[in-house]
Design a binder for these strands. Sequence first.
DNA 1: CCTACCGATCGGTAGG
DNA 2: CCTACCGATCGGTAGG
Lengths: 204, 204
Amino acid sequence: MSPRSSAHDAAATRTAIVAEAVALGSVEGLESVSIGRLADRVGMSKAGVIGRFGSKEALQLAALESAIATFTHEVWEPAARTEPGLARLHAIVDAWLSYLERDVFPGGCFLTAAACEWDGRAGPVRAAVEAGLARWQGVLGREAATAIAGGELPADADPRQIAFELGAIAMAVNQGRQLGRDEAAVPRGRRAMRRVLGPPRTPG
Amino acid sequence: MSPRSSAHDAAATRTAIVAEAVALGSVEGLESVSIGRLADRVGMSKAGVIGRFGSKEALQLAALESAIATFTHEVWEPAARTEPGLARLHAIVDAWLSYLERDVFPGGCFLTAAACEWDGRAGPVRAAVEAGLARWQGVLGREAATAIAGGELPADADPRQIAFELGAIAMAVNQGRQLGRDEAAVPRGRRAMRRVLGPPRTPG
DNA sequence: CCTACCGATCGGTAGG
DNA sequence: CCTACCGATCGGTAGG
């Protein structure tokens, strides 16, 4: 009688499909995740999978949205509890490296992979990837600007330069881990990020 | 009578196929370049294209080899004329940023794209990508070690850390140009690389 | 949510 | 180097 259960089931099915698409996509790229293999993985028919989204592109957008939510949860949220400025930047760096070290997505950072995969294409998926990365650069730049205004970073520092360099290091850590299987990538990244930010200030 | 002309033609055909594969692959990824579309682009049949290489994987390996040769020609060779150590590192940085700025491959750095695309896969192409990047890191690290030994960089600097950071910045420049269409990416990269290397030494 | 199917394209081969 | 073809798989739809 109650539609609750079926509505809940439908949402759970959709979530399971998206989770599988993100996991597979982080390993082999989002475009090469086919509806058919996805259907096998979640134990459904192709029509059942595609019916939830309407098109492969809509499924890709849902996967990207989910991966961004995961990144936000893993990297931004823990750091958002810290005071704005340099302390928060250091908290972001710690959470970011931890996220990379724990292989939250099985094939490494989904957003980095998507950025490489879509940067030569056109359309809504590429636009969403671009917007997601620009937003994150904006977050980093805002915290850097706060740190500069508060005298925690040099007055002549450039917030966008700092955001650029932190993003660069995170990409290289991801590549070192995924392609080079290099356990030294995270400590190297930490060292590089500390060189960008300077030492954390002891409060008081 | 002479086989010269046909042998030359055959080599030229192979070169044309590889060049097209590299160009297309830098834009949309090497795996998504199909034999059929490649055949259309070079005005041949599918069988003619695949016959030159035996398999798609062999074609991919040839494309990767060609892209590495281009990178070497564009970035290493001009710098190799400079004296080893810090001066050569600065020459590499200049050539590297110029290579990125001129979009030598239409979709940006082929090697960076291939590294992202193959880091979650297995097989000979992935191995070749990994080896190519490790070799380049080795070249950078060797120059850094020379600079340290010559007192041009701090005695406690880590050559592999320097190589890691330069590679990170180059990746971020590529992403900034290709995904963000950001003209500021190259100057930002130059500024970051100079921060890693310190100012160039005036000879004498 | 399923089965059954569509036309297109995939990598690759046979045969010349 | 070509035409013609192989079986497999692609994204997506019809109909229930």
